Amino acid sequence: MQSLAPANNTSRLGEAGAKTTATAVGAVGECTTTWNLRLQPVGYPLVTASTSMAEIMCDNATGANGSRPARVGCVVPWYPAQVLYSQSRYPSLASHVSRAQGSGLPGATITNPLNRNVDTATNNLNRSRACGDAPSLTGKSCDEYPLASTFQGLAFGGSRRTFSGCNISAPTNVTGPSGASACMITASENNAQGGLMAAFYYDYRVLHSDPFRIGISS
């Protein structure tokens, strides 16, 4: 406890931290730090106030990523971290995602993020409903947005749509937040997307149902 007396217009600083006990493999823990304030200026009654900082989630549940080992770490779980797709490195992937988001599909903003899904069965259903009948084109493969590894895929409702030039048999010029877009893109870029997402999920500790965003960079 720190007193503001005796000088007027005095400020005080404080710090708070968290040390997790969620260290066992697979463990996930959450905590909230609360500040309890007691203010009693001379000649006035005691006033109390309480305020809590943003919740922290710590875990040892993200697993390993290639040669990078499983490790304990902490994040602010309600803030959706962002993975960036580079237009210069992955032009066809970035183009499809940008158009899909522009048509109203979620994932671009903090208030309308995607949510990761680690359930294999529904992820596979997301993928098959979006790309199960994709044509065989040399050097290309089918990309679905929202990603198959999210709760926003077609396993959870909505219908498939596409864009002109995507070589997918589905309605075009469709807008709105539900459903998924499919498009044939450069296969090497589609394959690289898997590595990008695996590294992102690892680095930012994105667990099952956690929110995240996808952005487009230069």
Rank of each mutant, 00 (worst) to 15 (best):
Q101A: 03
S98G: 01
G104C: 04
Q152M: 09
P6W: 06
T32W: 07
N112A: 06
S52E: 05
H96F: 10
D59W: 05
N173P: 02
C142Q: 08
S67K: 02
G215C: 05
N124Q: 15
S169G: 02
Y145D: 07
T150Y: 04
A155G: 12
S141V: 01
A22P: 07
P77L: 02
G215K: 05
T138A: 15
M57N: 00
G153N: 14
A108E: 06
T34M: 09
S88P: 05
G104D: 11
F156V: 06
R68P: 00
T51S: 03
T34R: 15
M1F: 11
G194N: 10
R129H: 02
I110R: 02
V75M: 04
A27F: 10
N173A: 15
V174R: 13
A121M: 03
W78Y: 08
S209C: 01
P177S: 12
F151W: 14
N167R: 13
C166N: 07
G73W: 09
P6E: 04
R127K: 14
A170K: 10
T186Y: 11
R99M: 14
P177R: 11
S52A: 15
I214P: 04
G194V: 04
L13Y: 08
L105M: 00
A7T: 10
A170W: 09
S169F: 00
A180W: 05
G139L: 14
G29W: 11
G195T: 07
Y79W: 07
A155N: 13
E55F: 05
T109M: 01
Y204S: 05
N9F: 06
T20I: 00
N65D: 10
M197P: 00
